[in-house]
Structures are given as C-alpha cells and as structure tokens.
C-alpha cells in the first residue's frame, strides 16, 4: 500500500512536469516534477504513520 504513494506521486507530478515542459518548451520540469512527487509522497507517508502511531 505504502509502495503506491511514491509511484503515484512520481507519475502524477512527473506527468504535470512533462506537460509543462512541452508547453513552456523547457526540459527541466519533468525531473523536478518526478522528485517533487516522490518527496510529497514520502512526506505524506510520514504524516500518516505518525498519525497512526
């Protein structure tokens, strides 16, 4: 279950970054989006597990 969050985060924010890259004709937003998504997922996991504990 916990495994899904980083993948979901990377997929969604990576996708957003990739679309922004195509729109703004840049190339750095896709990796930024990936990392942001994974970071956000890890933050969320921390929050959820601290709440559960």
């Amino acid at each position: 279950m916990a495994f899904g969050y980083p993948i979901g985060g990377a997929a969604f924010y990576g996708g957003v970054g990739w679309l922004l890259d195509r729109w703004l004709e840049t190339s750095f937003l896709f990796p930024v989006g990936l990392l942001f998504g994974i970071g956000l997922a890890i933050y969320l996991l921390f929050k959820l597990y601290l709440n559960a504990a």
């Binding site: 969050y5 979901g8 997929a11 924010y13 956000l40 997922a41 933050y43 969320l44 929050k47 959820l48």
Partner: peptide, 20 residues
C-alpha cells in the same frame, strides 16, 4: 487522507487519487 489539513492538501489530493 485523515489528519492532514491546510494548503498542502491541494497537492496531496491528486497524489492520493493517482496512487489509489
């Protein structure tokens, strides 16, 4: 998700939706 509030929720909702 329960127990999380504030503006960060806006960032988390698509993430949760995606992962679920």
């Amino acid at each position: 998700p329960g127990g999380i509030g504030g503006p960060i929720l806006l960032l988390i909702i698509p993430l949760e939706f995606f992962s679920t």
